[in-house]
Design a protein around this nucleic acid. Structure first.
Length: 268
DNA sequence: CTGCCCCTGTAA
DNA sequence: TTACAGGGGCAG
């Protein structure tokens, strides 16, 4: 589920739940999600610590406590929400943190692919690895975007999804942004003109801002994102349906083993 | 670069 | 029963 907008909404929820709180204990229900750390190690690292701030970098969530940071990546199906404590966790819960106000923050993840780890502030960089510019940060300018594209031989969509270059775009928004900008996802980044990259950069920022806005609203409804449609895709998941701009049927193809949706009529 | 893996759920 | 799913790491 989560790309940048959803992660941003989840961060907001985590912030609201943790504001002014102390972590009483951490409970990892699937030990592989924190490996090579053990659940006991993780609990020892965070128990008793006061919450400071939540930070998002691309799709990574950093929960800063006094002296320790918890790194969370939701991967495909993860989410965070607060519940009453002792927590009534669904079977799909990967972990939960008991808070000092009688509530708990649950890391729910039906596929269990999400990860969780504790680190010192200095250790965080090592966990995240090489990560590019966050797509919603002020540093993500069209100039820097053009420079990044200019040094990439890969196809545009793969370039957009490469978190080492631009952090935050996933399969849906990469496809949607390229459609808005009228660029063929298969075209090598290297050969897209400056003008079109400027247009794409603007499309990315606007798209993510819009989506973040509605993700925040959708998340506050009971049931969260899953409850009905909150984002209207123009191409993603719409193979065979008419393009909203030119009415040609949307096509689906594979790039890097993942589905790409685009309109052959208005993306070149 | 491709293909496979992690895992569970859902739909064709 | 198979294919596919919004992510990412790894081996070849």
């Amino acid at each position: 589920m989560p790309e940048l907008p959803e992660v941003e909404a989840v961060c907001g929820a985590a912030h609201r739940a943790l504001q002014g709180r102390r972590i009483v204990s951490a409970h990892v229900l699937r030990r592989r999600i924190c490996a090579p750390q053990s659940p006991a190690q993780l609990n020892r690292a965070v128990a008793g610590r006061r919450f400071q701030a939540v930070e998002r970098r691309g799709k990574n969530i950093l929960v800063h406590l006094e002296g320790v940071t918890v790194w969370i990546h939701l991967r495909m199906t993860g989410t965070l929400y607060a519940v009453a404590s002792p927590p009534l966790c669904p079977p799909s819960a990967s972990a939960y943190f008991v808070l000092d106000d009688g509530r708990a923050l649950v890391f729910d993840d039906s596929r269990g692919l999400g990860v969780l780890r504790a680190a010192t502030r200095e250790g965080v960089a090592g966990l995240l690895g090489p990560i590019g510019l966050d797509a919603l940060s002020p540093d993500f300018t069209s100039e820097r975007f053009i420079a990044l594209a200019g040094s990439t031989r890969a196809a545009m969509k793969n370039f957009l999804m490469d978190q080492r270059r631009v952090a935050g775009l996933g399969n849906i928004y990469a496809a949607e942004a390229l459609h808005r900008a009228g660029i063929d996802p298969r075209r090598p980044a290297l050969q897209v003109s400056r003008m079109r990259l400027v247009r794409l950069h603007a499309a990315i920022v606007r798209l993510l801002e819009e989506a973040t806005d509605s993700a925040r609203r959708a998340y506050r409804r009971p049931g969260g994102f899953s409850e009905g449609e909150w984002f209207r895709a123009a191409v993603y998941g719409r193979e065979g349906l008419p393009c909203p701009r030119c009415r040609r049927p949307i096509r689906r193809t594979l790039q890097g083993g993942r589905s790409t949706y685009f309109c052959p009529g208005c993306q070149h």
